[in-house]
Nucleic acid binder design. Structure first.
Length: 891
DNA sequence: TTCTTCACGCTTTTT
DNA sequence: GCGTGAAGAA
C-alpha cells in the first residue's frame, strides 16, 4: 500500500509525474502510479531532523505532524469508479457537471442551485476515479474564505486523502506560491514582500512628491486606482497605450507607473496585481516553466468565473493549455465586481475562448420559494448581456415579495425592526434575518433603531482585522525586525508612538538614503552619528534604532509571540493606548492581544508574516450569537437567510448614481445584477422598501423609487405604501395587481387624503399614482444633490414624465399630518430640521437629564441637558462637556 | 513639531 | 454633516 502515496507531500517540482507512468509498481486496482523520487534536496533542514529514524523513507517527505501522516497514506476512497453515494443526491444537470471531467466545461450555476456542491463533488470524484493526485488539481477561488470552505467540504467527501490538495486557493495565493519558486525570473528574491493597499498608497505618494506633482489635483488614490486597473488588464508600463497614460498629470501616467514598478523592484516587493502579472510574464517568456505546470495540473477548477479580470483570464488560459481540463463555475447574472476589473465578458465568451467547451446550466434552485425566485428572475431578465437561465424551484409558492413605500429612512428602519421583532416572537431567530444595503452609510439608521429597541445585531464587513491601524503598526515592527531594509515599515513606526521624529526628519532620511544608495535604517544610523539633525529628533531616532537593534537580537532566542509583547511594552505602544481614553483604545489593546495569540499558531516569525501578507482574513467569527445581520449587497453574495430586507431602493441610491454616471448602461446592468443577488438571498421572505425622503450626507433629499421597483412582476408582489405613493409604472402599476389594495373604487377618495393621511387609507392603488405633495422645487428640503439642474434631477424629471407620474409627497406633506403610521405623534415642526427631532434619540429613547449614556466617539458620559434634538453631555473623559446630536446609546 | 483651520468629497471590496 | 488631509500658526 505504500505505493499509493500521494506525491503531493513532496515539494513541487518533483511530484509532477503522473499516475500511469511506466516505471511504476502496479496498484491493487490495476492503475500504475509512479514511485517516489529520491530524497528532496530542497527540504528545509528542520523538517528532516524531525523524522524518526525507524520510519520508512516515504515519510521523509511528509512534513505534517506524525499523527496526521498515517491516515494520509491510505488509498483514496472509491474503487476508481463512480461513488454512487455522492451522486445520488444530485439532479441530472449537477451529475453531468460532476461527471464531464474531460475538456473545457462551463457550469452556469444560477443562485442557489448547488454550485459549491457540484464543485466539491467534482473534485472528490476526480480523485476517487484516480484521474489525478490531489497535488495535480488546481482549484482557484477569489477569497480565502471560499477556498477554505470549499476545501473543507471536499475533505468531508473524500476524507483525509484529499489533504494533499495543495493548489487550492485564491488566484493570488496560488500565484504567490508559483512566484516564490521562480522569483529570480521576475528579478525578485524569493523572500519578496507583498504590499497591501496602504503601503502601495504611501509608495505612490512618495513618487508623486519626488516628481513634484500637485497631489491635490492628482491624488495618489487616483493613480493607485489607475495602476490597479492597468494591472487588472495585464498591462505593463511599457505596453501602456499613450492615451491611457494621459489620464494622469498631463501624460506623466506612464512614467509614474514605471517609477512605481522600479521602486517595487528595489524594495524587493510586489503588489497584489503583480502576483498575477509576474506569473503571466514568466509563463509567456519561459515556456519551459509553463510546461512544468502544464504537466503538473491535470485538472483546473475555477469558482465565480464571472468575477475574473483580464489578468486572471490570461493566467487561466495559459495554464489550461496543458491538460485542457478546465472547469469554470459561475453565474453571469451575479457578476457584481466590474468596478474592480471583473469582465462579465469572460464568462459570456467562454465557448469561444475554449473551443469544444461544454456548457451546463444548473437551473434547479434549492433555496427560495417561487414568488421570490420569480421576482428576481423577472428583474434580471431586463438585462441584455446575459447568457440566460430559467430558474425553477420545488419549494412552493411561499409569500409574495413585499414592497413598501415609506416616508424616510427612520420609518423604514422602524418598520423593518418591527417585522424582525414579530419574527422573533413567532419563535424564529434574529440570525435568520439580514438587512442588505447598497452602501454602508445606509447601515447607520438600522443600527440606531436596533440599539434603541435592544435588538441584537451584527455588522458584517467593515475594516478587516489585519487592516486596522494597531495591527498594521505591530506588523510593521515585526517586518522591520525581519528585514531592516523595509523602508515602508520603518516610516510607519519610527514615530509611533511619538518619538519626536517629524516629517522633516523623515525627508532628510530619505534624501540621505538615496545619496548613500541604502535603506532608512542604515541612513538614519549614519545621520545620528553626524550632526545633520539634533534635538528631540536625534534622541528619538537614536532610541528607536537602539530598540530595534535590541529586539532584532532578541528575535533569535525569543518565542515570536513573546517578542511582540516585548516590543509593544518597551516601545511604549501599550502605554500610548492605555493613556488614550477614547473607547476605541480598549478594543485596540484587545486586538493586539488577539494578534499575539494568533502568532502562536505559526512556527516562525517569517511563516507568520508570509501568511498575514496574503491572508487578510476577517478575524471575527462569532457566528454563535443570535443576531440580525447588517451587510452590503456585495458582501451578501454567496450567503442566504430565511428573511431578507432590501431597503433603500431609490434612484441614485440603488441603482447608485455614480455607477450610472461612470458606467452608463453597463453600470445599470451591474446594479440590476446586484438587485438580483439581493432578492435571491431570501429563502422565505423578501422585503423591499423605498423612501420618499432621505437624508443623504446630512441633506434632506427627495428621492424617487428605484426603477428596479417598477421592474418587479406585479403578480409576485404585495405592494403597500405608507406614504400614499407607489411606484408609478410597469411592475405593479400594471394590469394584474395581486394586492389587497387594488381596489379602483377607492382611488378617487384617496387622491386628496393620501398625501396628508397615511394612517388608514394611506395605501395607494397601484393603478393610480396619487397627486399631492408639491412638484419638485417647492420644498425647502427637497431637491436632488447638485440642485434642480443637476443631471440627476433632470434624469429623475424625465423618468417621472415618461412614467406619467407626479412627484412623491414632499417633506412638508408629512409635517401637516397629525399622526404617524404607528401612532407615534409627529413633532410640530415644518422643516426637515425639525422633522429630524422626531427621529432624534433624545425624543424616541426617552432620555432624562442625569441618564448615563455611551457615545460612539466620546465614550461614557452623563446627560446634563436636553434641548430638542440636542443633548448636552458631560463626558467622563477629562470632564468634557459636549453638545451631541449624533447617536448615543443608553447605559 | 504639533495644534488649528479650512476645503473637499462622499459606493461597492478582495487580494 | 462628517471625517480626512493638507496648509498655516504657535
Amino acid at each position: 500500500m505504500s505505493d499509493s502515496r500521494d506525491p503531493s507531500d513532496i515539494p513541487f517540482p518533483d511530484d509532477e509525474r503522473e499516475p500511469g507512468s511506466d516505471d511504476d509498481t502496479p496498484l491493487p486496482d490495476g492503475l500504475n502510479f509512479h514511485r517516489l523520487p529520491p530524497a528532496d534536496e530542497d527540504l528545509p533542514e528542520d523538517t528532516r531532523e524531525d523524522i524518526p529514524a525507524d520510519l520508512t523513507d516515504d515519510r521523509v517527505f511528509d512534513d505534517r505532524p506524525i499523527s496526521q501522516r498515517a491516515s494520509a497514506r491510505q488509498a483514496p476512497p472509491g474503487d476508481g469508479g463512480v461513488n454512487a453515494a455522492w451522486l445520488d443526491g444530485l439532479n441530472p444537470q449537477q451529475r453531468e457537471a460532476v461527471l464531464s471531467t474531460e475538456g473545457p466545461l462551463l457550469v452556469l450555476a444560477g443562485a442557489g442551485t448547488g454550485k459549491t456542491r457540484v464543485l466539491t463533488t467534482r473534485v472528490a470524484h476526480i480523485l476517487a476515479q484516480r484521474r489525478a493526485w490531489p497535488s495535480q488539481m488546481l482549484v482557484v477561488t477569489f477569497t480565502n474564505k471560499a477556498a477554505r470552505e470549499m476545501r473543507e467540504r471536499t475533505l468531508a467527501l473524500i476524507g483525509p486523502e484529499g489533504e494533499g490538495l495543495r493548489w487550492f486557493g485564491t488566484f493570488h495565493s496560488v500565484s504567490a506560491q508559483i512566484l516564490r519558486r521562480h522569483a529570480e525570473l521576475a528579478k525578485l528574491k524569493s523572500g519578496f514582500t507583498v504590499l497591501d493597499t496602504d503601503d502601495q498608497l504611501r509608495l505612490i505618494k512618495q513618487i508623486l512628491e519626488a516628481e513634484g506633482i500637485d497631489q491635490k489635483r492628482w491624488t495618489p488614490r487616483y493613480l493607485a486606482s489607475l495602476i490597479d486597473g492597468w494591472k487588472n488588464r495585464a498591462i505593463w508600463p511599457e505596453k501602456l497605450p499613450p492615451e491611457e497614460g494621459r489620464q494622469f498629470a498631463e501624460g506623466k501616467g506612464v512614467k509614474l507607473y514605471q517609477l512605481y514598478q522600479n521602486r517595487l523592484a528595489t524594495l524587493n516587493a510586489v503588489d497584489f496585481g503583480d502576483l498575477l502579472l509576474h506569473t503571466i510574464r514568466i509563463f509567456t517568456e519561459h515556456p519551459e516553466v509553463l510546461a512544468e505546470y502544464h504537466a503538473k495540473f491535470k485538472y483546473i477548477l475555477v469558482d465565480e468565473y464571472q468575477d475574473t479580470n483580464v489578468a486572471q483570464y490570461l493566467w487561466l488560459r495559459l495554464l489550461a493549455q496543458g491538460s485542457n481540463n478546465i472547469c469554470c463555475v459561475g453565474d453571469d447574472d451575479q457578476s457584481i465586481y466590474g468596478w474592480r476589473g471583473a469582465e462579465v465578458d469572460n464568462i459570456l465568451r467562454f465557448e469561444k475562448d475554449f473551443p469544444g467547451a461544454k456548457v451546463i446550466r444548473l437551473e434547479q434552485n434549492y433555496r427560495s420559494t417561487a414568488h421570490i425566485l420569480a421576482a428576481a428572475s423577472h428583474v434580471i431578465a431586463q438585462n441584455t448581456s446575459r447568457l440566460g437561465k430559467t430558474l425553477r424551484t420545488d419549494a412552493g409558492e411561499g409569500d409574495l415579495v413585499k414592497v413598501r413605500g415609506v416616508w424616510d429612512g427612520e420609518q423604514e428602519a422602524r418598520l423593518i425592526c418591527d417585522d424582525i421583532t414579530s419574527w422573533k416572537q413567532s419563535n424564529r431567530r434574529y440570525a435568520e434575518c439580514a438587512v442588505l444595503v447598497r452602501a454602508s452609510w445606509q447601515m447607520r439608521a438600522f443600527e440606531e433603531r436596533f440599539i434603541v429597541t435592544g435588538t441584537p445585531y451584527r455588522v458584517i464587513g467593515g475594516p478587516r482585522f489585519f487592516e486596522r491601524q494597531e495591527i498594521r503598526d505591530a506588523l510593521a515592527y515585526l517586518r522591520l525586525i525581519r528585514s531592516e531594509a523595509d523602508d515602508l515599515a520603518f516610516e510607519r513606526v519610527c514615530n509611533t508612538p511619538k518619538r519626536g521624529i517629524g516629517d522633516t526628519t523623515i525627508q532628510k532620511a530619505y534624501v540621505a538614503a538615496r545619496e548613500l544608495n541604502t535603506y532608512l535604517t542604515r541612513a538614519t544610523d549614519m545621520m545620528i552619528r553626524g550632526d545633520e539633525i539634533r534635538g528631540p529628533a536625534k534622541t528619538g531616532l537614536r532610541r528607536f534604532l537602539i530598540d530595534m537593534e535590541r529586539w532584532r537580537t532578541q528575535a533569535g532566542d525569543t518565542e515570536h509571540p513573546r517578542l511582540l509583547e516585548i516590543i509593544l511594552e518597551e516601545s511604549g505602544y501599550t502605554d500610548m493606548l492605555q493613556a488614550d481614553k477614547s473607547p476605541q483604545a480598549q478594543s485596540r489593546l484587545d486586538n493586539l492581544k488577539e494578534l499575539v495569540r494568533a502568532m502562536g499558531q505559526f512556527g516562525t516569525l517569517n511563516e507568520f508574516l508570509e501568511h498575514v501578507e496574503l491572508v487578510m482574513d476577517n478575524a471575527e467569527g462569532s457566528n454563535s450569537h443570535d443576531q440580525v445581520q447588517i451587510l452590503t449587497l456585495h458582501s451578501a453574495k454567496g450567503l442566504e437567510w430565511p428573511m431578507v430586507f432590501l431597503p433603500g431602493w431609490e434612484e441614485e441610491v440603488f441603482p447608485s448614481r455614480r455607477s450610472l454616471d461612470e458606467q452608463g448602461a453597463k453600470g445599470l446592468e451591474e446594479e440590476r445584477r446586484l438587485a438580483y443577488v439581493g432578492i435571491t438571498r431570501a429563502r422565505e421572505r423578501a422585503y423591499i422598501s423605498f423612501a420618499a425622503n432621505r437624508q443623504i450626507y446630512g441633506r434632506w433629499t427627495s428621492v424617487l423609487p428605484s426603477r428596479f421597483v417598477d421592474e418587479l412582476p406585479a403578480q409576485h408582489v404585495d405592494a403597500v405604501s405608507e406614504t400614499g405613493y407607489v411606484a408609478p409604472s410597469g411592475g405593479f402599476y400594471g394590469s394584474e395587481v395581486k394586492s389587497q389594495w387594488d381596489r379602483p373604487s377607492s382611488t378617487a377618495a384617496r387622491e386628496d387624503s393620501a398625501v396628508f393621511d397615511n394612517t388608514s387609507a394611506g395605501r395607494a392603488s397601484p393603478l393610480s399614482p396619487l397627486k399631492g405633495g408639491t412638484a419638485g422645487g417647492s420644498g425647502s428640503g427637497g431637491g436632488f444633490r447638485g440642485g434642480y439642474d443637476s443631471p440627476g434631477w433632470r434624469r429623475a424629471q424625465e423618468a417621472s414624465a415618461t412614467r406619467g407620474a407626479t412627484r412623491p409627497p414632499d417633506i412638508e406633506g408629512r409635517a401637516f399630518r397629525s399622526g404617524d403610521s404607528d401612532g407615534r405623534p409627529l413633532q410640530r415642526g415644518k422643516t426637515p430640521g425639525d422633522m429630524l427631532a422626531s427621529s432624534d434619540p433624545a425624543a424616541s429613547s426617552g432620555l432624562q437629564p442625569g441618564q448615563r449614556i455611551f457615545h460612539e466617539k466620546f465614550g461614557y458620559g452623563r446627560v446634563t441637558e436636553i434641548d430638542g434634538a440636542k443633548l448636552t453631555v458631560a463626558f467622563d473623559k477629562a470632564g468634557v462637556k459636549k453638545v451631541v446630536e449624533s447617536f448615543v446609546k443608553r447605559v
